[in-house]
Design a protein around this nucleic acid. Structure first.
Lengths: 188, 188, 188, 188
DNA sequence: TATGAATGAGGCTTCATTCAT
DNA sequence: GATGAATGAAGCCTCATTCAT
């Protein structure tokens, strides 16, 4: 993080880490500048405001992850296969970049409120898979929103446990268990 | 002489609502005072600081809820009955006081970080029930922390869905489904 | 200081102590009330404001002390006797009520600025004795204001030394030295 | 990029004047900022707090003045010459920068309480000269702390008189009288 | 582009004073 | 007379943003 990286990337990465660790509001421009090794004013050369930085960090990756999930899901035929691919992707994402995962899916900053229905959205992708599965009778019928929440919660809360150190194995190594549990929840 | 108790209660309730809606940091003393219909200084007769107010609100009810869960659990014999009682309690709590539930269990303010191991803790209560159930072979063996996270996530994420309006039925009316799903997760 | 004394006296004495120890501005009504064992509002039954309290404490005793000095001085014939009587009175006053002495003569609160020329004033009494002594040629001629300051400083700074613990004997036991020194200063 | 040094100097000088005129506690950040012609926040780029500013102003010059006195004293052989040099330095300092002199030696803000025994200290310098003079029998024997207080008071109170307008000549022009008076006090 | 000093609005808190009881 | 809760102005300080260099 010293100097090789261009300033903008350095700022983005540093800010992400601080946003996750302390929250967006609690992170000051000075914090970011100091940690990134640049001057305070430098940030404004690349982002119009702190809020814009927070949103840029969020929206870019949030949509990208949703698209990844959707691509994966499309390449599978059965609900079971789609679900499995998606959960494995969640786990892989977490293990690869815990900080970004947390920022997108666990942190309760205000960004989520700015997500519009048109934006690609991981929860929506999961929901559509589940709803289709119900229609196809591959899983038991029920409220698709409730089912989606259950599966999402199942996975995310284990990620939280990993974050806090209560869960000690990598998420990827728990993927089989997560998939099995999710499937039992959906299969009824 | 005037009785300060009603003012204190008004401040506490108002602050809770604002903390949940906007976050603790984002809520100003002026916000609280205005919404509670008191002067800014009034707050400081009842709480030493905004931070202390946020913590008092959290810690008092957090521990109380954990104790409720524990009492319930003790009065049941089987793991299944314990689990069911606890999940119903979560649902009832949510339906009765959504704001408080959110503040204690969903909001990501810094309060959770201040919970000490000695404090009664809802997650710990659930974990001990699950760990015991595994020992007694009433549920399938596995990492109790992972299982706890799964069940907790299952329930909490549905509460989140309800909060955001995606789930439209009261949690209590979904309790049966939640218990069934949780049981399938644990039963293996 | 518990209860026997009437409230007003209790407040006055307590306030004086705090004013000297911490300064008037730095002493709050709450400080006074707590130390005096009364409610905050009680003070306003006896004094219109904190400032009025500070001034009352000052002006009453300041003038009284000046009158004492003046009485003493009048009862002596020679400048030497007058000077000696006054310095002994300073010492006795300090030893008897160090706190009040400090408040009147050493503390740099704003009260001194409110002293009007008509008010009896210890420095003025000393000055008139010195000026008369010069006129009578009992002491060497010079600027009476300079001479007054020298004598006053001589005595007061020793009081300061006593206060801070650098000087360890009571002022009264140093009175002879102080008188002798003052006299040498004035005699030229 | 802008150079902060002039701003810092402006703040320091302005604050010093206000601290002397009204006292530290009675001087607000707004007062300083307005008088210095800068924004309130500017102060905090140069000093961490108002208290730190007050202390910095005090401690820097207090120690420097003590060192000056000590240098002067060392370059003289006799107690009489040392005393004379020091008193002349007091007078010159007062005449050159009355405000700073007042802040260091006359104002009763809390700074004096923070002076540690290791810090160079004008009173200590004077005391050591007097103590040595007594040991060498150049002046009459006695309590060196009492003698120090007397001489110090002699000089300082004349400065006070000058400040308040009762004494109308510059201190430097009174130096001879002060030295003579101090010497009479010490010579016994 | 980068730097970091300067700005100034606004946040948290204190505290003299008032007032209902 | 006394109590202490309530008021609200004002103080100190923070921090996103601007701007001279």
């Amino acid at each position: 993080m010293r100097d090789g990286a261009p300033t903008k990337a350095k700022i983005a990465r540093t800010a992400l880490g601080l946003f996750v660790k302390q929250g967006v509001t609690e992170t000051t421009i000075k914090d970011i500048a100091r940690a990134a090794g640049v001057a305070e004013g430098a940030l404004y050369r690349h982002y119009p405001s702190k809020e814009a930085l927070a949103w840029d960090l969020f929206s870019t990756s949030f949509a990208a992850f949703a698209r990844e999930l959707d691509d994966l899901q499309r390449q599978r035929a059965t609900t079971r296969a789609k679900l499995e691919a998606m959960i494995r992707q969640f786990c892989a994402f977490f293990d690869r970049d815990r900080t970004l995962f947390t920022y997108l899916l666990l942190a309760q900053h205000g960004q989520l409120a700015r997500v519009t229905p048109e934006m690609p959205n991981p929860t929506e992708v999961l929901r559509s898979v589940i709803a289709r599965g119900m229609a196809r009778k591959e899983i038991s019928k029920g409220d698709p929103d409730v089912a989606t929440a259950m599966v999402m919660g199942l996975v995310l809360q284990v990620a939280v446990g990993r974050l806090y150190g209560r869960v000690t194995r990598d998420l990827s190594s728990l993927a089989d268990s997560l998939v099995a549990a999710a499937w039992r929840v959906l299969k009824g």
